[in-house]
């Protein structure tokens, strides 16, 4: 992520000359400075550690479940639950057991640890794919709109306005019944359609903010000398866009990514809670919806996914805030 040479020349104040131990003036890009500041930010380090832990749990979900000896959807209502539909082993009626560390699901007898781990997986999968796609769309449209100006800019800006007046929750409301109507008969196809549908809806209704931001940045950057110089010496437009402009947009892009991931985790679980998200695979929101009926007798059933979402989203948000501060030149110390 090397910055263009021109940027180094125009902003010499990025060198930390004031620090006494910096005998030699070292050239550091704004990205390096931001990373350096993040390393010294305690909140950021702790949040990042929590996020890494969740990612590891999600990736290793199959390994962990087989190590503990639990399995997804392996419950047998006649064997694992009693006459009141409550699990025969583990909480809430019996003590802790390694056979089911988080207990079994009332009614079905499915293992809740496996469901929790795969729920984390679903959550992070949906959030990261949606973030990637919406970032690509936002950056591409923002670059094109800001650089082209004229009619193309006006068209893209209008499309941004249209999408901003159509929040994702309404989009999800619209999509859920269509998928259900179409794929209702085939659970496997429905699950696939819902998974890609959620990603589609989240992506479709979340690229606008970044596109607007990038467009504004490009509008001012394109008037700068290094862009004009590149165009004068005949650098092709594509190279100007990706080699000259894009490296200067790293800060807003990174900040946008770090704030979209928690928003998508929240959104995915929220939709699942409302019953218009994923229904075919484990999702924390779905577990919360089912568990809220048992919150009093079987608090662990509800609280395991609640704490999962809270911890992950708070860590991601605080990390995002730290990233924003680290990349913000105004807070430069």
């Amino acid at each position: 992520m090397a910055m263009p040479l021109q940027e180094m020349v125009t902003s010499p104040d990025t060198d930390p000359i004031e620090t006494p131990d910096a005998k030699q003036v070292a050239g550091r890009s704004p990205t390096q400075i931001a990373l350096e500041r993040l390393r010294h930010d305690k909140v950021a380090v702790v949040s990042a550690a929590i996020v890494v832990l969740f990612v590891a749990l999600a990736i290793l979900a199959p390994v962990i479940t087989s190590l503990v000896g639990v399995e997804l959807n392996a419950g047998d209502p006649s064997e694992d639950t009693d006459a009141f539909n409550f699990p025969v082993i583990g909480p809430p009626d019996n003590g802790f057991t390694w056979e089911a560390p988080l207990g079994l699901e009332p009614g079905t007898g499915d293992d809740l640890l496996a469901e929790w781990l795969y729920g984390a997986r679903t959550s992070l999968e949906v959030a990261s794919i949606s973030t990637l796609l919406s970032t690509i769309i936002g950056v591409a449209l923002g670059l094109v709109a800001g650089f082209s100006r004229g009619w193309l800019d006006r068209v893209i800006s209008f499309v941004i306005d249209v999408f901003l007046s159509f929040p994702f929750l309404l989009g999800a409301l619209a999509m859920a019944p269509i998928l259900l109507n179409r794929f209702g008969g085939d659970p496997e196809a429905l699950d696939k359609a819902q998974f890609f549908g959620i990603i589609f809806i989240l992506t479709f209704f979340s690229w606008m903010g970044l596109a607007r931001l990038i467009r504004g940045e490009v509008l001012s950057l394109r008037e700068r000398e290094f862009v004009q110089a590149a165009r004068v010496i005949g650098v092709p437009t594509r190279t100007v866009l990706f080699k000259e402009l894009l490296p200067n947009l790293i800060a807003p892009i990174v900040v946008s990514i770090s704030l979209s991931v928690p928003a998508f985790v929240t959104a995915e679980a929220g939709l699942a809670y409302l019953g218009i998200g994923l229904t075919g695979r484990p999702s924390w929101g779905q577990t919360i919806n089912q568990a809220s009926g048992y919150f009093d007798e079987y608090a662990l059933y509800l609280w395991a996914p609640v704490i999962g979402i809270m911890l992950l989203v708070i860590a991601l948000n605080l990390l995002g805030d730290s990233v924003r501060d680290a990349f913000d030149p105004k807070t430069r110390r």
Binding site: P262, Y273, I309, V313, D321
Partner: peptide
């Protein structure tokens, strides 16, 4: 910072 980091529906549900 903390309150706005928790999803709204969890607060309402709890």
């Amino acid at each position: 910072l903390i309150i706005s980091a928790i999803p709204y529906y969890l607060v309402a549900l709890l």
